Amino acid sequence: MTQVGELLREARHRRRLSQLELSHQLGISARHLGFVEVGRSRPGRALLVRWLAHLEVPLAVRNQALTAAGYAPLYDDAPLDGVHLREATAALGALLASHDPLPALLLDADWNVVAGNSGLTRLLGFLGVSAPVPDLRDGAPSTPPLPMVDLLLEHGLAATIANLEEVAPPLLAQVRAEAVGVPGLEPLLAVLEEVAGTGGAIDVPAAPTLVTRYRAPGGELAFFSMFTTFGAPLHITLASLRVELLFPADAATRERLALSAG
């Protein structure tokens, strides 16, 4: 039971809750909570499920905790091309396509590119980046996911980012927050730590959102992002996915994209 206790303790620390605060919120004694965290007691299944949900533990990690405690896992982890996910996969494909000619990409919990639209492929080509971007065909990704680290380094996308030292620190903070319980993020975390550590703090004007600027023929292209996720997903695969929609951050970028799409 130590593994479950350690997981619950780490999750509580991330939420910045004391044992007393959390015990009150869960309606249990602080003594019982403490015994569970050190592995001296096992919570009932219903309590463990409620405990994990209250701390917003990722669904995959909730399954791991339930299994470690001797209970059956609760959440399905079938792949994206599974029969039960056909409608969800179709919705993802429609969202990616509807954003064209602007770039859009589907990311998983490890920040792998599961799929992209024509706008993303067109943008990468415009930047001189040759990468095998998967797309959604017949309810499934056409090729294996493309790791973000490979896209940045092996395929050269990072070299095209004009303000990499500016965007790396906030991205690093985001990845660090997501990396707890997600070992697949370690390579990306290492890359961002190296980049963010070289430039130090950068004094830039406050902006409504983070803008990434890419070096391209004829001048820079600037984008900001919006993310879309499933509402209250109860499936591990769906919970791990998000769609990143890129939008022009200035009129020049918007005009150049319209010309290249035509």
Rank of each mutant, 00 (worst) to 15 (best):
V133A: 06
V149M: 04
M148C: 12
H155N: 07
P145D: 00
D138A: 15
V129L: 05
L152T: 09
S142A: 13
S130Y: 03
L164A: 14
A162H: 15
I161N: 07
V133E: 00
L157R: 08
E165S: 13
G139E: 04
M148D: 10
L136W: 12
P134H: 14
A168S: 06
V167F: 01
D150I: 10
T160F: 06
P132A: 02
D150F: 06
T143C: 00
D135M: 10
E154R: 13
S142E: 05
T160P: 02
L153Y: 05
A158W: 14
E165A: 15
A162I: 12
S142F: 07
L153V: 14
T160N: 06
I161V: 15
L153K: 09
P132Y: 03
P145E: 00
R137L: 15
I161K: 04
P132G: 03
V167R: 04
R137N: 10
L151Q: 07
L157D: 07
T160I: 06
L151K: 13
V129N: 05
V167E: 03
S142D: 10
I161Q: 00
P132H: 06
V133R: 01
H155G: 10
D135R: 15
L171E: 13
N163R: 03
P141W: 06
L151V: 11
P170A: 04
T143G: 09
D138E: 15
A131F: 06
A159N: 11
P145N: 09
P169S: 09
P132D: 00
L171V: 04
N163E: 09
L164Q: 04
D138L: 13
E165Q: 14
L157Q: 01
R137G: 04
P134R: 15
S142W: 01
P145C: 07
A158Y: 11
S130P: 05
V133P: 05
D150H: 11
P147D: 04
P169Y: 05
G156F: 02
V167D: 05
P170N: 02
D138R: 12
P141A: 11
S142H: 02
P144L: 07
D135A: 15
L146H: 11
A159I: 04
V149N: 01
P141M: 04
V149T: 12
L146Y: 08
V129M: 02
P144I: 06
L157A: 01
N163I: 08
P134C: 08
L151I: 11
G156L: 08
L153D: 11
L136A: 13
P169V: 00
V133W: 01
H155M: 07
V129H: 01
L152A: 03
A131V: 10
N163F: 05
L171D: 11
P170I: 05
D150Y: 00
L146T: 06
P132L: 02
M148Q: 14
D135G: 11
E154W: 05
A140W: 11
L151R: 11
V149R: 08
S130K: 10
A158M: 13
H155I: 08
S142N: 07
E165H: 14
T160K: 15
V167W: 04
A159S: 14
A140V: 14
P170C: 03
P134T: 14
P169H: 07
R137C: 14
S130Q: 12
L157V: 13
